[in-house]
């Protein structure tokens, strides 16, 4: 029988090795990620934008929808940092609040996508056979529709609003993640640890939730990061076309739709360059971070 002293001895670090040297898998990932300068740059930029979105009211003296008809179409100046629009609303303020909308839509729609994709992918991968066949055929049906045309159809039917955009992006985007999860679970369930789980008589639900899904976490996280980026892009396209987030709520996409007017395009750069650049920088940072995360989580995938 092991005495308390002996147990303590086992837990003591090996000679010549400091406590910090023993790394958990997550610590290894973070360490690898920290070495990737581009990924860290992406993370920093995204964090700054997210903070700016959260603390938007503190970062500007103006209000989001504050109309001032005596000060319309002002050029950028010391009071209105990015000028004002045709209704005299401060554009810098709207850009800050636009970040809130774009990031929220990205996060929420990606969450919906992941919940649906993980549940269906998990079920399809674990049970296989007919269940798998049916779920994957449904996924096939969904991926036959070109994304933007079917998305504008849905939004047109439901009516343009921020909630409908989130819902539509979530409901249409799940097959990608479903395929990833299904593929991984399909191979994981044949592993020995699953045999052990079966021998212990664990329920299917527990097997999927506790033993299979955690092993697919890496792919899910990477896919989610990239998914937020593409959701922000799609939301901006829908809003740009007048079918996404409806004014007066500002989103980077609907702020850009002013530029369809030739006069604005030619003479009022401050009304369309800043929101366009914001989308570009945010999406690029998310992609950089996602790339780095993929390399850090699974070095085998490093290309």
């Amino acid at each position: 029988m092991a005495t308390e002293k002996e147990v303590k001895k086992v837990n003591e670090p090996i000679k010549g090795m400091k406590q910090e040297d023993i790394l958990s898998p997550w610590k290894i990932v973070i360490k690898r990620l920290k070495r990737n300068k581009l990924a860290m740059l992406g993370l920093t930029v995204v964090s700054i934008i997210a903070l700016a979105a959260i603390f938007a009211p503190l970062l500007t003296p103006h209000t989001r929808d504050g109309v001032n008809l005596l000060n319309t179409n002002a050029k950028p100046n010391s009071v209105n940092w990015l000028g004002t629009d045709a209704l005299g609303r401060d554009y810098y303020t709207r850009l800050l609040y636009g970040a809130r909308i774009s990031l929220t839509v990205g996060l929420v729609s990606t969450s919906i996508r992941i919940v649906i994709g993980v549940i269906l992918g998990g079920i399809a991968g674990y049970y296989g056979k007919v269940v798998d066949g049916v779920i994957m055929r449904i996924a096939d049906i969904f991926s036959c529709f070109p994304f933007i045309p079917i998305a504008i159809t849905f939004v047109a039917i439901l009516g343009p609003s921020i909630y409908n955009v989130m819902l539509v992006l979530g409901l249409l985007g799940w097959p990608g993640i479903c395929r990833i999860v299904r593929g991984e679970i399909l191979s994981l369930r044949e592993r020995e640890f699953m045999e052990a789980a079966t021998a212990l008589g664990i329920s299917d639900y527990r097997k999927i939730i506790r033993h299979l899904l955690p092993n697919t976490m890496a792919s899910i996280i990477v896919s989610a990061t990239m998914g937020i980026a593409s959701a922000i892009l799609t939301e901006s396209a829908l809003s740009f076309l007048g079918l996404g987030v409806a004014p007066p709520i500002p989103s980077w996409g609907n702020m850009l739709s002013d530029a369809q007017n030739r006069y604005v395009l030619q003479h009022r750069w401050w009304l369309w360059i800043p929101p366009g650049l914001s989308i570009f920088v945010t999406v690029m940072s998310l992609n950089l971070f996602g790339d780095g995360l993929r390399d850090a989580l699974d070095p085998r995938l490093k290309q």
Partner: peptide, 22 residues
């Protein structure tokens, strides 16, 4: 490639129109 994936196509289009058409 990263820039190409990240730029909204309509924004890119507007930039080109501004530069080359206007």
């Amino acid at each position: 490639a990263l820039m190409g994936i990240s730029i909204p196509s309509f924004f890119f289009a507007l930039l080109l129109i501004k530069k080359f058409s206007i």
